[in-house]
Each structure stands twice: as structure tokens, then as C-alpha cells.
Design a protein around this nucleic acid. Structure first.
Lengths: 182, 182
DNA sequence: AACATATCGAACTATTCGGTTCATAATGGT
DNA sequence: ACCATTATGAACCGAATAGTTCGATATGTT
């Protein structure tokens, strides 16, 4: 029944993702994607409509595969949040920060669908954070704290791109002191 | 004594800045800069070494011209910070967020000098913020709060690029409630 | 063996890119 | 009038861009 394909969509996305992650949409060329994925341009075009389609697919793949297990652990509370933040602050692989946050920078040269994906993802994260916050005794409304924390996280993700400045883990420690004081 | 030049460096930077601000380094072409500044490519290259040099000059110009008067008003305190944040949250002109924060995204494809500029600027801002925080009675160290606030600001700047989500002014209000509770 | 599918590289188009050079015109002061 | 300085636009370069097509080849199933 014909020759079987030896790459699947997910493998390609998995390898193309770090490129877009590190260099953004505008500065990532098809040549780079070819090299990184090992798939010929012809093959890429057989799977994706064009570069934008590929980027969107990578973004979609990113938001659907990121694990946030730590935020679902019981008991809910600050410790979960701290663990999650520290995990985020330590760029495990070469990828720094959050791909979705990085994408915000290029939001207005990307299709609206990109913004929709980013927001959906952000809201899901906020919901998880909020549950953990609500489990704690706080003087301020969980909504307020969640909103602050979410924006802080965006800041953390973007600042990770810098070489200097206070280290992300230290920033997280500072933030946790703030949170526990609320 | 020869024909006088009818553009000066600062005017050019003033007009090129919004381009880099909105679309970033990689996605801004010399063609765009020509059109925006009204200065011929030849003229640009007589004033700047290359595109990167122009970008650096724009970044330098940005950080040296941004006014932060509100943070220096007496008496120092939360009100100053709130006024400053609200000013930042309301993108007065077409420019959204902070150019320096946007630049972080492209940090590793820019010369190290760019990072140096951004950091210097960031430290200056932190110092101003900190003075206002120290003027208040807080339970947490001013250093801790400053660090948190600074990262929050980065987040705010990057999230402004999004169309949806909670409006920046609302986010600022949430943050101020947090700050005043510290 | 016959057939169906997939892979790959190459070729191709048309455009744009950053960057350089130069000749010409414009505009001032002396 | 002469000269110095600047502005301008066009030509040009080599390289790279996104995107498309096609044919040769490989690899499976039946």
C-alpha cells in the first residue's frame, strides 16, 4: 500500500518548535526548519500550508503538550506554585522562558488565531493558579492575586532571555515572599 | 560653507524608533526605515554604520529620553508608583509597552551592548521604584518588593501586545492592591 | 512483478534583503 | 563665481527569501 512516511506531524513540530522559540517567527527561515527537522521543503509543504501554518501548529502543539502537573498536586497551595515557578525559572533545555509569551511580541504580525491560542492557554494556566491560591488563607481576593501572578510570570518568561540581572530563581524567591505575605 | 543637512540624528531616531518598537529588529527592513524617516538609504548609511548600529542608537535614544518624572515626585510612595504604572499601561501613542522589554525577546541575536543598555536602564528604573517603596511602611524588604514589581512591569509591557485579556489598567489596579497590602 | 505511496533533491520564480558606490543636483558661505 | 558640503536616487551586488513543481528514487503492500 505504498511507501510509509517516516516522519509524522508531531515529530516535525517537536523539532521546529525550538527554532521558533529561540529566534521568533520573522527570523526563522525555512532553511533552518529543513535542517532542524530533517524533512525536505517538499515534505513540509505536503504537511503544512505554509510557514505561518507551521508556526501556528507549533504553537498549538506547545500549549497542548506543556505539563503543569505540579499545579494539580494535592494539597493545593503556595508550595505548588513555588515548585511550578522554579521549574519555569530553570530553563531545563536550551529553550528559555515561555514560547507563548515570546509569541506575544510578534502578536500583530501573526494571525488572530495565534492570539486566541495564547489566550486560551493563559486562561487555563490562570485557572490552575487560582485554585492553588484559593486553597490558602489570603487577605486579598484570589482573583487579584492570580492576575498579578500571571503578569509576573509573563515578565519572568521574557526576562529570562537576558544574560545579566538577578537570576530567575532569586526572583521567584522574592515573589514567593510576597505571595505568602498576602 | 556647504549645504546644510536637513535631518539630524535625533530626528531620524525618533522616527525609526516606532518601527523597531512595533515590529522588532528582524522584521523591520531598511525600506521601512527609509519611508518612515524620509531619509535616503545613502543618508542613513552616512549617519549609521549599519542596521544594527541604527537599532542600537534607537535603543540608546529610547532609554535616555523616557521620562519618569512621576517617580521622582514628592512625597514618594505608592501613589507615584500607581501613577507611573497607569501611564505605562495606557499606550499613549501607537507604541505599546516598553521598547526595552520588547528587545529582550531578540536579545540573543543582538550585540551584547544591547543587553547592557537594557540592563542599565532597568537598574535605573528599579532605583527609582525602590525609593518610592522605601518611603512606605512595608513588612517586606524594599528590595524584595522592587524585584517583584520590576518583573511585573516586564510582564505588563509584553502582555500589552495582546488584544484580549484583562485590560492593562485593570491589571495595574490589581497590582496596587497587592502592593498596598505588603 | 505490479502498484501505490513517500522521500528527496533539484530547479525555478519572483522578491527582498542589507549593504555599497557613484554621479548629479541642491544649497549654502566666502 | 567659486567652493564645500549635503541630498538624492539609481544602479548594482551577492545572498537569501518564501513558495512551488517535478522527476527520480526508495519502500512498502498485494
Amino acid at each position: 500500500m505504498g511507501r510509509p512516511k517516516n516522519f509524522n506531524r508531531m515529530q516535525v513540530l517537536e523539532k521546529a518548535l525550538p527554532l521558533f522559540w529561540k529566534r521568533g517567527y520573522a527570523d526563522t527561515g525555512l532553511k533552518d526548519i529543513e535542517k532542524a527537522t530533517g524533512v525536505n521543503k517538499s515534505g513540509l509543504y505536503s504537511e503544512f500550508k505554509d510557514k505561518q501554518d507551521l508556526y501556528l501548529a507549533a504553537l498549538r502543539h506547545y500549549v497542548t503538550t506543556r505539563r503543569r502537573d505540579t499545579l494539580s498536586l494535592e494539597p493545593q497551595g503556595w508550595d505548588n506554585i513555588e515548585a511550578y515557578l522554579k521549574m519555569r525559572a530553570a530553563s531545563k533545555d536550551g529553550n528559555k522562558g515561555c514560547f507563548a509569551v515570546n509569541s506575544m511580541r510578534e502578536a500583530d504580525l501573526l494571525p488572530d488565531e495565534a492570539q486566541a491560542i495564547i489566550n486560551e492557554n493563559r486562561n487555563a494556566l490562570k485557572a490552575l493558579l487560582r485554585r492553588n491560591i484559593e486553597a490558602e488563607r489570603t487577605r486579598l481576593p484570589a482573583e487579584t492575586i492570580t492576575e498579578m501572578l500571571s503578569t509576573f510570570l509573563s515578565g519572568l518568561s521574557i526576562e529570562i532571555n537576558m544574560k545579566v540581572g538577578k537570576s530567575p530563581p532569586r526572583k521567584v524567591e522574592d515573589l514567593m515572599r510576597v505571595l505568602r505575605a498576602l
